[in-house]
Design a protein around this nucleic acid. Structure first.
Lengths: 250, 250
DNA sequence: CAGTGGTCTAGACCACTGA
DNA sequence: CAGTGGTCTAGACCACTGA
């Protein structure tokens, strides 16, 4: 049984930072360099304790983090193994629209096109994924970056979950910003697709009819209770969703 | 100073599962229900130890997990506070193209349109984000679901990082699948946009010229070393990227 | 400068499961 | 059934920072 020594490349780092972080990055490096290939059985916790001369909890913390990030898989009695990198997952940060515009150095402004309170129509109920009619607030608005239309928004807010929204005029904050700041949520879903602008959308977005647009549909819930369903439309030629990611999230 | 008692709703669960998981979900429930609003200072670790009659490490594990998921923010000396839910992040699972097709109950097949080895052109170098010329493999292919085109793929593989790719004909596995199974990576980036199909793309995808298409550009690296850069094109009318998510990921 | 979180120690008992 | 990971205990010392 070979004694595993810490990789020499980090010998100089020994004093820096947390020990568990160092153990984690040592193992990560060996996996990413290919030294420990998928399927390789990494040393057991008790062996790593000796290698790094530390408590088992310290090693455990590093290995739990590696398992959470998907780099290794752990099985009782069998040991810990380098994962087959099968599933990739990307974290998309959905920032505030206003922040999005200001991040590119432009002036944000909001234009409310309509704001109507009503009992949910069949189409509303489908969007909110509910079976029974309920009071909703329907808002159409445009987000401007300078004079250019950055996005067109078509939003439904469930007034059962968010009664306060009935009073809002959204003069200060766009609906999404207000909701994010005032309403806690537990789950959401994004659906991203491309579509050709029809007459109405082309007018709203200021693009030619038929131009490719990116549509992001987002639904948000608190438990089983719907909060809001929104469709955001962006001109396809300028807008991009960018996501950085690492193996299996994180 | 009020003694915090575990929420009554879970009194019955007391014996179930791990204690740290129970502490975590108790706090999560109070935050999501709005009982503990953003900015609220949650009990300190030593207080929670008494509430749950456990060791500090057990409480700490729960709080570290809550902080990692973004529900709380922790500050030395000040305490732990319920976060303002400002940033949303979504985890997109990027599954294998073949799996994607088979998941909708259709037969997957691959059609290699071209496969060329060359020294990187200026455009290749830009796509791979490298400054010096290097050998690359350029592959164009189509992914079919039954007889319908599911996606069109335009891929570059860096032969310095992945010399083995030079020998591949991709008869069995599509390039993405082969790479995922054989080449470890550490970072990737997705860029999602919408575009109108030009003559070439409409022919490849079997859609009308001008039809909105979803484009996913993905670049993958191992450390500073580029591995591959791919553009996947999907017909906009049928394809959707779907992402489920919770507050601040996870 | 005292209170809080960050990290670690040196154990323990147990659940699970594959050699 | 023995080896491995899962979780917890009851401490400890320290870094940081805001009342």
């Amino acid at each position: 049984m070979n004694k595993v020594t810490p990789p020499p490349s980090v010998e100089a780092d020994q004093s820096k930072g947390q020990l568990s972080a160092r153990i984690r990055s040592d193992i990560e490096r060996r996996i990413l360099s290919g030294e420990w290939a998928p399927g390789y059985r990494i040393p057991i916790e008790r062996e790593l304790m000796e290698t790094y001369d530390c408590a088992r909890m310290t090693v455990n913390k590093a290995l739990v983090a590696l398992a959470a990030s998907g780099l290794i898989e752990r099985r009782r009695r069998a040991g810990s193994f380098v994962s087959q990198p099968l599933v990739q997952s990307a974290v998309i940060e959905i920032s505030d629209v206003r922040a999005e515009v200001e991040a590119i150095g432009q002036t944000y402004s909001l234009e409310i096109l309509s704001r109507r309170q009503r009992t949910s129509t069949a189409s509303d109920m489908k969007r909110l994924d509910v079976q029974t009619p309920r009071p909703v607030l329907a808002v159409l608005c445009r987000h401007l970056a300078g004079k250019r239309v950055h996005a067109f928004e078509d939003r439904l807010i469930d007034l059962v979950s968010v009664p306060d929204a009935a009073e809002l005029t959204f003069e200060k904050d766009p609906p999404g910003t207000w909701l994010r700041e005032h309403v806690p949520w537990s789950e959401a879903e994004n659906r991203i697709s491309a579509l050709n602008a029809d007459a109405a959308l082309s007018a709203h977005l200021g693009v030619k009819e038929g131009a490719a647009c990116l549509q992001v549909e987002r639904s948000t819930w608190r438990g089983a209770q719907p909060i809001t369903a929104v469709r955001m439309y962006y001109p396809g030629d300028t807008y991009r969703l960018v996501a950085h990611f690492s193996p299996k999230g994180n």
